[in-house]
Design a protein around this nucleic acid. Structure first.
Lengths: 225, 225
DNA sequence: CGTTGTGAAATGATTCACAGCT
DNA sequence: AGCTGTGAATCATTTCACAACG
């Protein structure tokens, strides 16, 4: 369909932010929004917003702006946020539990449909409505429940092994909370969140006063598909 | 001191990753590491690593590489990771509690020295060794305990108000887990972590197979100092 | 030799500025 | 008037390629 010539990586990262902003305005009186308004809500220029959006087609109305519901729907399509994604959490520690209870995931279409851990005393427990399974069940459940995304919340020294298991089982994307770079093949995507690295960069900005600062979202690696 | 001409923002983000990698090799036999080795451990080219490092001086040894301990120390200095940072957690919900127990923070020099919440039944409780205080105590404690960084784990509709309180109290950096862009002045830095946005981008990569994918770490806003 | 440091070239991303639509 | 879409210009970042060093 549309001319998907070449999408800059930063654009992709901003798309989710556009959608988040629009969703938070869904119940506002205004039914349209201009690139300038959307941009200033996110600290971006109007030109940036327009450039980003036109990579995916032309859905603005000159003189008017963008229709909020129309743009919201288009962004959901583009980001595949209009379908359900089944996910598995591996690691029922503190962070894993916080994510299991994170109400925003289901609302955004991300359903946690399986939880795994190795600790015998945790296996079998029901946490936030999810029964914790042993790692042996992973291959079967990933296949059975059509799990495409794994959420990794295990200690760093277990991360690579768990990632390998997830990939062997057929998972195509991993949200990694362990402070290591995961080695994965071309067919698998990884997005890493490292709280310490985030704090470290914040501390650097604070101490140096890096004006303008950094943008972007999370750390990703290889991609593919 | 050194010629800090102009540091690209992506470089700053990679510095923490270099340090993380080096720290994980501290007890290995090899006492030196080449830009090629360091780079390939992080999915970067050797030239990239060298360029990044030389923004801060020349501490490599031609024909040899970099001395691991020397480079580690230099990076700690550069990132101000060689000192202690006092932080406060606002919001003693699931995510806040997970961070309070996060062992990596103290090891990296980030000490949580105060915890706040609004819920009367939570105030006074001791969680992971931290007594939860009412918001009224925030200004005093931030000053008393020399807190420079705030960690925000409150619902999105409370985030801006809490950020304002933190800034009024003198905090200079905010690690924001609420899914909103915080409006802050030039003197304050913000780094945002939005789990839903991360998952959304991962899902996009998975579905589109965006080869090469995205880099970077977390989402930041204005900066300052 | 292998490896650093670094200008120069290439690539990538943002901003400008304006034609054209409402 | 207000706004989008977009080529061209600017700015930023990465990669190349090689001299100099151990």
């Amino acid at each position: 369909m549309s001319s998907r010539s070449k999408i800059p990586r930063p654009t992709v990262k901003r798309l989710s932010l556009y959608l988040r902003e629009l969703e938070s305005r869904a119940d506002l009186e205004k039914t349209t929004i201009s690139s300038k308004q959307l941009g200033s809500a996110l600290g971006l220029t109007d030109a940036q917003v327009r450039k980003d959006l036109t990579y995916f087609g032309q859905f603005g109305h000159p003189g008017i702006g963008y229709e909020v519901t129309e743009l919201t729907n288009r962004l959901r399509q583009i980001l595949r946020a209009d379908r359900k994604w089944n996910t598995a959490v591996v690691g029922a520690g503190k962070i894993g539990r916080a994510l299991m209870a994170y109400q925003r995931f289901p609302r955004k279409g991300f359903e946690i449909v399986a939880v795994f851990d190795t600790a015998p005393d945790v296996i079998g427990q029901v946490i936030a409505g999810h029964r914790v399974r042993p790692m042996e069940d992973l291959p079967t459940l990933v296949a059975q429940r059509d799990i495409k995304i794994g959420i990794l919340t295990v200690p760093h020294d277990a991360a690579q092994k768990v990632a390998d298991s997830l990939i062997d089982a057929g998972v195509l994307g991993i949200l990694n909370f362990a402070p290591v770079r995961l080695e994965v093949g071309d067919a698998v995507s990884v997005t890493s969140v490292d709280f310490s690295v985030s704090l470290e960069q914040l501390a650097f900005q604070v101490s140096l006063g890096l004006t303008g600062s950094l943008d972007e979202h999370e750390c990703d690696q290889e991609g593919g598909g």
